[in-house]
């Protein structure tokens, strides 16, 4: 224990108990270290924070707002994507508005209806099992459109250590090597707004505790489409492994980085092309959004 205050969390690697104040300081210090070591934020950056109002993006926005004064001429804009999921998104959007108001952060919303003329519920009728992939493709596009419009130079997402480890395992299970070795740091691509993950070294449980002790934990409903996701099975398998064998998630990410270092460039050496429909950068003839639009008859 670092002080005499009552502990709120026990962390392993190294094994330690932290009180609320030390937990807050620890999370913010580690996020700042990730940003510094991976050079995620540079002077004059305008950061679009992908902000759903859920716990990870709330922790990201709170952390970045507090670190903001330590960077030269950096600004934040929170972007909320309204997919149009009945009984779910309205609550999270309300939560998002409250947080941005409290933090005095600029906030913009973009909806799937703005993007493709329909909400997710309508798009998924009869194809519910594809919910996460359809939503993921459109959400990335919506975020990118809104970030561009807001003049952002980076897009920050709230992916945490658990998310990163789950993605490594999911890409391995799917045999998707290009996606497995895609670099997780801000890249120098001229075609896309670089994406950054300042919370990638912080466990989901630490993030939840970080918010709870500040009365910022959002008690929100779960996305109704989650039950169709492969991630749900992977998450439960990995968290059981982590509990039994601490360090499992970190080791998975370490393995991914080692593979990335050795084969990353070779796997990713295919030149980027332009989508023949919309002109966006992509690897094939059509980008994922246009492929999806065609399959949806949009």
């Amino acid at each position: 224990m670092l002080c005499a205050e009552p502990p709120v969390i026990r962390l392993r690697e190294p094994d330690r108990h932290l009180c609320a104040a030390h937990l807050i300081a620890d999370v913010e210090k580690r996020a700042a270290r990730t940003i510094r070591e991976r050079e995620l934020i540079k002077p004059h950056d305008r950061i679009a924070v992908a902000f759903s109002g859920g716990k990870d993006s709330t922790a990201l926005l709170v952390t970045l707002s507090r670190l903001l004064p330590s960077w030269e001429d950096v600004s934040l804009v929170a972007i909320t994507v309204d997919e149009g999921i009945a009984g779910y998104r309205d609550d999270t959007i309300r939560a998002a508005e409250e947080v941005t108001k409290k933090l005095r952060t600029e906030h913009v919303c973009i909806s799937f209806t703005d993007l493709v003329g329909d909400d997710l519920d309508a798009l998924l009728v009869g194809r519910e099992t594809q919910a996460c992939s359809v939503c993921g493709i459109l959400r990335r596009k919506a975020l990118s459109v809104a970030a561009q419009k807001a003049g952002a130079t980076k897009i920050a997402t709230g992916h945490n250590l658990d998310d990163e480890a789950q993605s490594v395992l999911m890409n391995t299970l799917r045999g998707d090597l290009p996606r497995l070795v895609r670099t997780s740091d801000a890249d120098s691509s001229d075609c896309f707004i670089p994406r950054i993950k300042p919370l990638a070294d912080i466990a989901e449980k630490e993030i939840a505790a970080y918010l709870f002790v500040q009365d910022l934990f959002p008690f929100l409903p779960e996305c109704p489409y989650t039950r169709y996701a492969l991630r749900l099975e992977v998450r439960s398998m990995l968290s059981a492994m982590e509990q039994k064998h601490p360090g499992t998630m970190r080791n998975l990410i370490k393995s991914k980085r080692a593979i990335e270092k050795h084969v990353g460039r070779r796997v990713m050496s295919e030149p980027l092309r332009r989508c023949r429909e919309c002109g966006d950068p992509c690897s094939g003839e059509l980008c994922q959004v246009c492929t999806l639009r065609k399959s949806l008859g949009k």
């Binding site: 779910y88 658990d162 939840a208 996305c223 996701a229």
Partner: peptide
């Protein structure tokens, strides 16, 4: 007991 693993 608060569940933290959420989808969405």
């Amino acid at each position: 007991i608060i569940r933290i693993a959420h989808g969405g």
